[in-house]
Amino acid sequence: MKIIVDFDRCEANGVCVGIAPDLFELDDDDNLHVLDGDVADDRVADVEEAVAQCPKAALRLA
Rank of each mutant, 00 (worst) to 15 (best):
L32I: 12
D27C: 10
A50C: 04
I19T: 09
L59I: 02
C16N: 05
A12Q: 01
L59M: 06
P55T: 00
V39F: 03
L23S: 06
K2S: 12
V39N: 04
D6V: 09
A52K: 11
N13H: 12
G14K: 02
R43H: 08
I3P: 00
L59D: 00
H33D: 04
M1K: 08
L35Q: 02
D6I: 10
A12S: 15
D29Y: 14
E49N: 10
A20G: 05
D38P: 00
A12D: 06
C16V: 05
D29S: 14
K2E: 13
Q53H: 09
M1N: 05
V51R: 06
E25W: 06
A62P: 04
K56T: 14
C54H: 05
V17W: 00
L61A: 01
P55L: 05
F7N: 08
R60E: 10
H33E: 10
D6E: 10
C54D: 08
R43Q: 13
R9K: 15
D28L: 15
L61M: 12
K2M: 09
N31M: 12
V34D: 02
A50I: 04
C54S: 10
K56C: 11
D22C: 01
D6G: 08
C54K: 02
I3N: 04
D30S: 14
V47D: 02
R9M: 09
P55I: 03
L61H: 06
E48I: 07
D6P: 08
A20L: 03
D22E: 15
L59Q: 03
M1A: 08
L23D: 00
K56I: 06
D22F: 13
D28A: 15
V17L: 05
G37Y: 03
D42G: 07
